[in-house]
Amino acid sequence: MKGMTLIVKTITDFVAGFIVIFGAYIVLYGHLTPGGGFAGGVIVACAFILLMLAHGSDVAFSKLPEKVAHVMDSAGALAFLGIGWFGMTMGFFFMNSFGRGEMFKLFSSGMILPLNIAVAFKVGSSLFLVFSALAIFRRRSFRAMIEDELA
């Protein structure tokens, strides 16, 4: 059987969805409560990494295909930069051009919320891709790689 034991798999299936929701909460409320794009993105990525650890990389990639992760990786960074460029229309790079909104409301703080979302996509997908890159080398020991090199 691929992956870890049935107990781990069952628990992972239960909690993975909640971890994603919690991560999304950290991202969306980053400008009101402690947290933000980076922390939330890492938490969301952790849900997929947990799936990869428990079920193996095939299941994780069926939930979040590698290509989609690559697209989110670049698109997140581009969105961040795009918001910065938008500030140029107001005269300065990264000028807060969205209006401040009402205090303690979800849609407030101008461009901080969209920036947090962009960072979350970038960080979350990057972390997932880094982990999946490490997983490729997991089964091949260093000795086997050296022996291949010599052969």
Binding site: V71, S74, A75
Partner: peptide
Amino acid sequence: PLFVAVPLAAAFIIPLLGI
């Protein structure tokens, strides 16, 4: 700022389109 923003944008657009 465009001296930083232009190559940075290219650095992310290239792998995105490169797929």
